[in-house]
Structure formats: structure tokens, C-alpha cells
């Protein structure tokens, strides 16, 4: 089964060269599957809507916002994001590993105003580590509702420390204001596309959790104020 998943993964990351665009540069299209994990109420769905439409959820006219897409056209690559929202209720926790099969990025979200969601996030992370297939999924830790900084229960430092310890990429966002949401999306896309050449070449095991976008690097997201 593992082999199978890797093969599937290969299939996606290879991307495909499309006919030339007017500029004359061949553009690759890349599918990026990202899964949102975290407790109920931390703002996963709000983030998903932000990712796909760059607006806060209330004005969304769609029937459902569990599966959303967003296409970003960059110079040399077209990124097609698929955003998979998950049920956050604790009773569904045990079935969530099914969601992140073949995901390029897993975003573990917590609410900076609720300590218990941060504790819960660590459970998610341990779970992810257990199911983890080296080289397949880049894991992110996201502190959401950054606009409510005055009620903060989890400090920026705590989040950064956890990320460092586990070797994850980290950022704080606000789905409400849209702060750093687009940057995050770009960074997720870049970390997925950067891995692509390695993936096409061979089955490499040098991509581990720590090989996400390293903290503070150019392509990484920005950190808090």
C-alpha cells in the first residue's frame, strides 16, 4: 500500500508541461492538495474560504465549503490548490488519517485565544507523525485568529517553539482580516513545487518533516509582528 501511495503521489507531483503560453515559457500545472486539521471552532472553514476566494466566510454563496479550490498563476507554474476541510469534532478524530492520504500539505490549526486547541493541536501532530510517509506531506502549524491578539492565551513564542521542536513550518494568520493568508497559500504552493523535481527523480527519503520550508527562509511565511 505504501508503495502505491508513493506512486500516486509521484503522479501528481510530476506536473505536466502545458502548451506554451503567449510569453513563450512552458508552464507547468501542479495540483496541491492541502488538508485542514484542528479542533472545532479554530477557524478551519473560515481559512478555507479565505484561501479559495479571499473573503470571510459569511458572504459565501456556495452550497458547501468543505471542498474548495483556488488557482494561482505564477510566472513559471500554475498552482491548482484543493482545499480539504475536515470535521473537527473530537469523535471524528480517529478517522481523519484517511483525509491526509496523498496530501501535499497538512495544516494543523489552533486558536491563539484558546489554550486547549493548542494542546489538541499537539495530539493531531503526534497522530500525523504516526501516519506519516516520509517525503509526501509538508506539515504546517497555524495559529489562527491573530486579530484577537489582545485575548491571546497562546503566545507567539509557544507556537514557534513547538514548530521548531517538531521541525514544522509555522505562521499566525487571521481568517477574519485575511492577514498572511495569501502568503501562507503561496508558501504552501512553493514548498510543494520545490519538492517536485526531487520527487520525479527518485524515491527519496531525505524529505522528512523538517524539509518543509525552513523557518525564516525567503520562501517561508512571515512571523508575527
Amino acid at each position: 500500500r505504501g508503495l502505491f501511495i508513493i506512486r500516486v503521489f509521484l503522479l501528481f507531483l510530476m506536473g505536466e508541461t502545458l502548451p506554451r503560453v503567449p510569453g513563450g515559457v512552458p508552464v507547468r500545472t501542479l495540483r496541491v492538495k492541502m488538508v485542514l486539521l484542528g479542533s472545532s471552532g479554530v477557524g478551519k472553514s473560515s481559512l478555507a474560504v479565505r484561501f479559495s476566494k479571499d473573503q470571510f466566510r459569511d458572504s459565501s454563496p456556495t452550497v458547501g465549503c468543505a471542498y474548495l479550490t483556488r488557482v494561482l498563476y505564477l510566472e513559471d507554474i500554475t498552482l491548482r490548490f484543493e482545499i480539504w476541510d475536515t470535521a473537527g469534532q473530537e469523535k471524528y478524530h480517529s478517522v481523519t488519517p484517511l483525509y491526509y492520504r496523498g496530501a501535499h500539505a497538512a495544516l494543523v490549526v489552533y486558536d491563539i485565544c484558546k489554550k486547549e486547541t493548542f494542546v489538541r493541536a499537539q495530539v493531531w501532530l503526534r497522530e500525523l507523525e504516526k501516519q506519516y510517509i516520509p517525503g509526501s506531506t509538508v506539515v504546517w502549524l497555524i495559529g489562527n485568529k491573530e486579530d484577537l491578539s489582545q485575548n491571546r492565551e497562546v503566545s507567539l513564542q509557544e507556537g514557534q517553539n513547538l514548530a521548531q521542536e517538531k521541525g514544522l513550518s509555522f505562521t499566525e494568520t487571521s481568517a477574519l482580516s485575511g492577514d498572511r493568508v495569501n502568503e501562507l497559500l503561496l508558501a504552501v504552493g512553493k514548498s510543494s513545487s520545490h519538492d517536485a523535481p526531487v520527487q520525479t527523480g527518485r524515491l527519496s527519503d531525505n524529505l522528512s518533516l523538517s524539509n518543509g520550508v525552513p523557518q525564516g527562509s525567503d520562501s517561508g511565511p512571515t512571523f508575527g509582528p
Binding site: 472553514s45 454563496p61 456556495t62 468543505a66 476541510d85 470535521a87
Partner: peptide, 14 residues
């Protein structure tokens, strides 16, 4: 959607 009068999220769907 008809029941809640807002888009269904993953929390409702599963």
C-alpha cells in the same frame, strides 16, 4: 444549506 441557511461545512457534512 436549506436547513441552516448557510453553506454546509465539513463539520456538518460528515
Amino acid at each position: 444549506r436549506i436547513t441552516k441557511n448557510e453553506p454546509a461545512s465539513a463539520d456538518d457534512f460528515l
